[in-house]
Every structure is written in C-alpha cells, then in structure tokens.
Amino acid sequence: MDDIFWDNQADEYGIKTPELERDDKLKKLVEQPSWVIEGVYFKWVKPSFKMAGKIFILNIPLSLQEERIWNRYAKRKIGEVTSVKKETLQSVRDLIEWNRRYNQEHIPNFIKDNEFKSKIIHLKIMKISSNT
C-alpha cells in the first residue's frame, strides 16, 4: 500500500500520491476476485474493510519493529537493497516516532471503535526469535 499511498517519483521523501489517483488504484485492487492488502492506512482503506472477509491485525513487539525499520534504512543506504525511497536520517526518526503512536494509540482505537469488529482477528505476538 505504501507504493500507492506515497509518490515514489517525487523529488523528496514523504510526498503523497494525489487522492483521486490513490483511491482509484485501491478501488481496482478490491474489485479483483481475491485480494490481500497490508499497511497502516485505516482511514484511507476503509472502503476495502466493507468488502473484506477478514481483517487481521498483527502486533509484533515494538522493539523488533524499530530494529527492522533501522535495518531497512541501513540496507538501503549501503545499497544492499534497492529502493526509490529518498529517506533521510530525520525521516527515519520521524517514522520511528509515528510507529510508536500507531502501535500505542491507533491500533487500540481502531479495534475498539469501528464497525467491522466481527471481521477482526487480532494476533498478538509476544516474542519473535532474532532469526526471523
């Protein structure tokens, strides 16, 4: 969903795709006979929740999420992983902070206050080995 939500052709990091273009791409995705979407876009993808058979929420330890964000950034910077993202050290710090709020506020609020409770399957993973 990041590749639809964010404009990867923009000259700087963090520029959103125009809303109409983004919404049209989402609509085409959910018109398929079967589909899986992932991401953190509760508000933007809400139309897809109506069509979804199940909504899975996967919570993994915040420390592991942050480790993976830093590792991804490092791999992109050294060229181990190619990416069109134009991240900066500050944008990664901002992402870490946003990710904390997302996990501590947005996910609990979404689970508590939405019309799709009967579709939600909440998976809480308490520990993942470092080999994962």
Rank of each mutant, 00 (worst) to 15 (best):
D2I: 00
D2M: 10
D3A: 02
D3N: 14
I4L: 07
I4V: 12
F5A: 12
D7G: 05
D11G: 15
E12T: 15
Y13E: 13
Y13V: 04
G14C: 00
K16S: 06
T17C: 00
E19V: 05
L20M: 05
L20C: 04
L20R: 10
E21L: 11
E21I: 08
R22G: 03
R22N: 09
D24S: 08
K25S: 02
K25D: 00
K25C: 03
K28P: 06
K28E: 05
V30S: 05
E31M: 12
E31Y: 05
P33W: 02
S34G: 06
S34R: 11
V36E: 10
V36Q: 12
E38N: 06
E38G: 05
E38W: 10
E38F: 07
E38K: 13
Y41S: 00
F42Y: 11
F42P: 00
F42R: 10
P47I: 04
F49G: 04
K50A: 09
K50H: 08
M51A: 14
M51R: 14
A52H: 03
A52S: 14
G53C: 03
K54P: 01
F56E: 12
I57W: 10
I57E: 03
I60L: 07
P61F: 07
P61N: 04
L62N: 03
S63D: 12
S63V: 07
Q65F: 00
R68L: 10
R68C: 05
R68Q: 11
W70I: 13
W70K: 15
R72Q: 11
Y73Q: 11
A74C: 01
A74F: 10
R76I: 11
R76W: 05
K77A: 07
I78H: 08
G79F: 12
G79Q: 07
S83N: 13
K85S: 11
L89E: 15
L89F: 14
Q90L: 11
S91L: 08
V92I: 15
E97T: 09
E97Y: 07
N99V: 07
N99M: 14
R100K: 13
R101L: 02
Y102L: 01
Y102E: 07
N103P: 00
N103C: 06
Q104N: 13
Q104S: 08
E105H: 13
H106S: 02
I107K: 11
P108M: 12
F110P: 02
F110M: 03
K112E: 07
E115L: 14
S118Q: 15
K119L: 09
K119T: 05
I121W: 01
H122W: 14
L123W: 11
L123V: 15
K124P: 01
I125A: 00
I125Q: 05
M126K: 10
M126R: 12
I128L: 15
N131C: 03
T132Q: 04
T132I: 15
